[in-house]
Lab assay of single mutants.
Amino acid sequence: HMTFVALYDYVASGETDLSFKKGERLQIVNNTEGDWALAHSLTTGRTGYIPSNYVAPSD
């Protein structure tokens, strides 16, 4: 899985969403939902949907 870094803070709007903080590292599990991606946080160990425009690929 590619690793991504959060560009902004995001507060989950539902139970299936994943909250994260700017700078948090995430792995995209499934990116077939258009503007949303299923992601796993390497920081918190949690998995949920995130807005895909809130993250960018990290080196």
Rank of each mutant, 00 (worst) to 15 (best):
G45T: 02
V29I: 15
T47H: 07
S41W: 02
E15K: 11
A39P: 00
P51L: 05
V29K: 08
A56T: 14
D9I: 03
R25Q: 12
A6Y: 00
L38W: 14
S19E: 06
E33N: 14
E15M: 10
G34Y: 06
T16C: 15
G34L: 07
Y54Q: 06
N30M: 14
Y54G: 06
Y54M: 12
L18I: 11
H40C: 13
V11F: 10
Y49S: 03
N31C: 14
S19A: 06
K22L: 04
R25A: 09
S58Y: 15
Y49D: 01
R46F: 09
T47N: 06
G14N: 13
I28G: 00
L7H: 05
L42P: 07
H40G: 02
K22P: 04
G23L: 02
L26Y: 01
S58L: 15
D59H: 12
K21C: 11
Q27D: 06
H1S: 12
K21Q: 11
G48K: 01
A37D: 03
K21Y: 07
R25G: 04
G14W: 07
V5C: 06
T43P: 02
A6F: 01
A39K: 00
A12R: 04
V5T: 09
T47I: 09
Y54F: 12
W36P: 02
T44H: 02
Y8D: 06
V11R: 06
F4S: 04
H40N: 06
W36H: 06
E24C: 03
R46Y: 08
G14H: 11
F4K: 03
V55D: 04
V29Q: 08
G48Y: 04
Q27K: 10
D17R: 10
W36A: 03
P51H: 05
S19I: 06
L26C: 03
L38A: 02
G23K: 01
R25S: 10
V5M: 06
S41G: 01
G14D: 08
D17S: 09
A39N: 00
T16R: 14
K21G: 06
N30G: 15
S13V: 15
V5P: 01
I50R: 00
T47K: 07
F4P: 00
S41Y: 00
F20V: 11
I50N: 00
D35C: 09
V5S: 03
H1Y: 13
R25K: 13
Y10G: 00
N53Y: 11
E33V: 11
D35W: 09
A37S: 11
V55H: 05
T47R: 07
T44C: 03
N30Q: 13
I50K: 00
S52T: 15
I28L: 10
G23N: 04
M2R: 12
V29C: 14
N53E: 09
A6Q: 00
E33Y: 13
A6G: 04
A6P: 01
T32G: 12
L38Y: 13
G23T: 01
H1I: 14
E24I: 00
R25N: 07
Q27I: 15
L26H: 00
E15F: 09
V55W: 07
A39H: 00
E15Y: 09
V5E: 06
G45H: 07
T43H: 08
T3A: 07
S13M: 13
Q27F: 13
G23H: 03
S13G: 09
Y49C: 09
A37M: 15
T44W: 01
P57M: 12
I28S: 01
G45C: 07
L38S: 01
Q27A: 08
G48D: 02
H1W: 13
K21L: 09
S13Y: 10
S41A: 03
G48A: 04
T16Q: 13
S13F: 10
G48P: 02
D35V: 11
A37E: 04
G34E: 07
L42W: 06
Y49N: 04
Y10N: 01
T43M: 07
A56N: 08
Q27Y: 14
T44Q: 05
K22S: 07
T16F: 15
L7E: 07
T16H: 15
S41N: 12
L42T: 06
A56W: 10
H40F: 12
L42V: 07
K22C: 06
T47M: 08
V55P: 04
Y10E: 00
S52H: 09
V11W: 10
S13D: 08
L18Y: 04
G23V: 00
W36I: 06
D9L: 06
T47A: 06
L42A: 05
K21D: 05
S52Q: 09
V29S: 08
Y8L: 08
G48L: 03
T16G: 14
S41K: 01
R25F: 15
D9C: 05
G45Q: 05
E33Q: 13
G14R: 14
R46I: 07
E33G: 14
E24D: 11
A39D: 01
M2F: 11
R46D: 06
P51Q: 04
T3H: 10
K21A: 09
V29A: 08
P57S: 10
V11T: 12
S52V: 15
S13C: 11
I50D: 01
M2E: 09
F4E: 00
D59V: 13
D17A: 09
R46V: 06
L7Y: 03
D9F: 02
Y10T: 00
N31T: 13
Y49P: 02
S58V: 15
G23C: 07
T32D: 10
T43W: 07
R25P: 08
G45P: 00
I50S: 00
N30I: 11
S19T: 09
N30V: 12
F20K: 00
T3L: 12
N53L: 09
L38I: 06
T3P: 06
K22A: 11
S19H: 04
D35T: 11
S58A: 14
N30F: 14
P57Q: 10
E24G: 02
T16N: 14
T32C: 13
Y10V: 03
F4N: 02
L38N: 02
L26T: 00
L42R: 02
I50C: 02
T32S: 11
V55F: 11
N53F: 11
A37W: 15
A56R: 11
S58G: 10
L42D: 04
I50E: 01
Y10K: 01
L7M: 08
E33K: 13
T47W: 13
T3D: 07
S41H: 06
L26E: 00
L38M: 09
H1G: 14
E24T: 01
H40K: 13
V11P: 04
M2I: 13
V11H: 10
D9G: 04
Y8H: 09
Y49T: 03
Y8T: 07
K22W: 03
G34S: 09
G48E: 02
G23D: 05
R46S: 07
G14F: 09
V29D: 06
T44D: 04
A56Q: 11
T3S: 08
S52N: 09
A37R: 09
R46Q: 11
T16E: 12
Y8G: 04
I28W: 04
I50Y: 01
G34H: 08
G48W: 02
T32W: 15
Y10P: 00
M2T: 11
D17K: 10
G14M: 08
A12N: 04
P57W: 13
G45N: 07
A12P: 06
S58N: 10
D35H: 12
I28Y: 05
N31R: 12
L26A: 00
V11M: 09
T3C: 13
L7R: 05
E15G: 08
L38Q: 03
S58Q: 13
V55M: 07
L18R: 01
W36R: 09
L38V: 05
E33W: 12
V5N: 03
Y10D: 00
T3W: 13
A39T: 02
E33C: 14
A12F: 03
N31Q: 13
V55R: 04
H1N: 11
L26V: 04
T16M: 14
T3M: 11
S52L: 15
E15S: 11
A12V: 04
A56H: 09
F4M: 10
N31Y: 15
A12H: 04
S19G: 08
D17M: 14
A39Y: 05
N30C: 15
N30P: 07
H40D: 02
T43V: 10
A12M: 04
T43G: 05
Q27C: 14
A37C: 15
Y8N: 06
Y8V: 08
F20Q: 00
F4H: 07
M2G: 10
L42C: 11
D59Q: 12
N53A: 12
I28P: 01
P51R: 04
L42E: 06
N30K: 13
